[in-house]
Amino acid sequence: MFAIVEIAGLQYKVEQDQKLFVNRLAGEKGAKVSFDKVLMTVNGAVTVGAPAVSGITVEVEILDHVQADKVIIFKKKRRKGYAKKNGHRQQLTQIQIVSITGFDGEKKAKPAKKASKKEETSAE
Rank of each mutant, 00 (worst) to 15 (best):
35 F>N: 06
23 N>P: 13
49 G>C: 08
72 I>N: 14
43 N>E: 14
15 E>P: 05
38 V>R: 03
78 R>T: 12
46 V>K: 15
46 V>E: 06
63 L>P: 07
57 T>I: 06
54 S>R: 12
98 V>I: 13
90 Q>Y: 08
44 G>T: 09
54 S>K: 15
113 K>W: 07
120 E>Y: 13
30 G>T: 04
69 D>V: 01
56 I>A: 01
38 V>K: 00
105 G>T: 12
81 G>S: 05
17 D>N: 13
41 T>K: 08
111 P>H: 12
13 K>L: 04
97 I>K: 03
99 S>R: 10
64 D>M: 04
53 V>F: 04
45 A>T: 15
55 G>H: 00
39 L>T: 03
58 V>I: 10
60 V>R: 04
53 V>M: 00
96 Q>S: 12
33 V>R: 13
20 L>C: 02
15 E>L: 05
20 L>W: 01
101 T>Q: 15
115 A>N: 06
69 D>I: 05
34 S>G: 01
31 A>G: 08
21 F>Y: 12
93 T>N: 06
85 K>Q: 09
79 R>K: 15
19 K>C: 04
120 E>C: 10
64 D>Q: 11
68 A>R: 05
26 A>L: 04
22 V>K: 03
73 I>N: 11
2 F>K: 11
43 N>W: 08
49 G>A: 12
98 V>D: 06
82 Y>V: 08
8 A>L: 09
23 N>S: 11
79 R>G: 00
84 K>L: 13
17 D>M: 11
111 P>R: 14
95 I>C: 01
117 K>P: 03
51 P>T: 05
121 T>L: 15
77 K>M: 08
76 K>L: 13
99 S>M: 04
101 T>H: 09
89 R>D: 11
6 E>H: 08
18 Q>C: 04
58 V>P: 07
80 K>P: 05
61 E>L: 10
48 V>W: 02
69 D>N: 09
10 L>R: 15
116 S>F: 04
73 I>H: 11
28 E>A: 14
66 V>G: 03
70 K>M: 11
66 V>L: 13
50 A>Y: 14
106 E>H: 13
11 Q>F: 01
58 V>A: 02
39 L>G: 05
91 Q>A: 15
84 K>P: 02
12 Y>E: 05
49 G>H: 14
84 K>A: 12
89 R>C: 12
7 I>F: 05
25 L>A: 02
8 A>W: 14
8 A>M: 13
73 I>V: 14
50 A>Q: 15
33 V>T: 12
31 A>F: 05
35 F>C: 07
9 G>E: 03
90 Q>H: 12
87 G>I: 07
14 V>W: 06
113 K>T: 10
48 V>P: 01
24 R>K: 15
47 T>G: 13
44 G>W: 10
55 G>S: 00
83 A>W: 05
98 V>G: 00
65 H>C: 09
37 K>M: 05
73 I>P: 00
2 F>P: 06
90 Q>M: 13
50 A>P: 11
